[in-house]
Design a protein around this nucleic acid. Structure first.
Lengths: 146, 146
DNA sequence: TTCCGTGCAAAGAGTTTGCATCTGT
DNA sequence: ACAGATGCAAACTCTTTGCACGGAA
């Protein structure tokens, strides 16, 4: 498999901070980047186990948060079940979330601009300074609509 | 204190379902309605304790979820700390969330229409059907910008 | 009188933390 | 060699659940 730019970017971030590239971290980062569908910690862990059977859940948590703290991973936290992570597009953008199968998709075409503008406008009126935002759209994915 | 329409609406919902209006429920509903700032379960509980010192957290959870299941309360779940609730405006609308003091505000002027439209457009392109949505804007409130 | 609601305590789920051991650099 | 990472298990937070007692209707 040819290394994606994204993978290299993430690894570079770690190296730049003088952090160690352990086999576990490499596997986690790879899983994160290869996963188009916003994986959970549990999913990442499962994907890694075949190659590194002793990897603990704690390590996955630590690594993912490490990357998040460097702004390279977006965390989508939910109250109920666990968080889901986006290692491909770390900047805030809308998400389509299927309430039946749990799929999380990035809208095509994209256009965080409209969102950004809306956030800025609402915040300004209230005297808020914006640091981030999140827009989740809940519904049924094409496969789950009858 | 003069009973707000909102309070009456909530109580009516409970009555309509043949549910009992216990003193605890009344107190919880009142606290929910009088609270402009999206209270947590813990906060509601604290506000009620002076009047009903034996009220348990479990009861607050149950009551709040009861109202939520009837569409009369909006739950804002977060991954980290606990959920916050809006008993005044149960329909989806944007929220301004201060990352320093935790305040949650409803933008003035309002305009869920733009959001609604954006959600519909993004969903349609992906073949999603929309059932709900959520837009959180994170930043610093006027008081916390120093 | 009848259920429904309450309160307590125990159970759960997801996440984090402490610490001894191991390992990349 | 040494700072940093790992893995295990215990701890934590928020929330839910089971069950016997109590109270609204």
């Amino acid at each position: 498999m040819e290394p994606s730019n994204r993978l290299e970017t993430l690894l570079e971030r770690l190296r730049a901070r003088g952090l160690r590239l352990t086999p576990q971290r490499l596997a986690i980062v790879r899983a994160l980047v290869n996963h188009p569908g916003h994986p959970s910690v549990e999913q990442l862990h499962q994907e890694i186990l075949p190659d590194f059977p002793t990897t603990s859940l704690a390590t996955v948590y630590k690594t993912v948060h490490l990357l998040k703290s460097q702004g390279e991973v977006l965390e989508l936290a939910f109250g109920e079940q666990g968080s889901r992570f986006d290692g491909l597009r770390p900047r805030p953008h809308p998400h389509l979330i299927c309430t039946r199968c749990g799929a999380i998709m990035d809208p095509a075409g994209d256009g965080p601009e409209a969102l950004e503008a809306l956030a800025a406008e609402l915040a300004q009126r209230a005297g808020f300074s914006v640091s981030s935002h999140r827009f989740d759209i809940f519904g049924l994915c094409p496969a789950c609509r009858g």
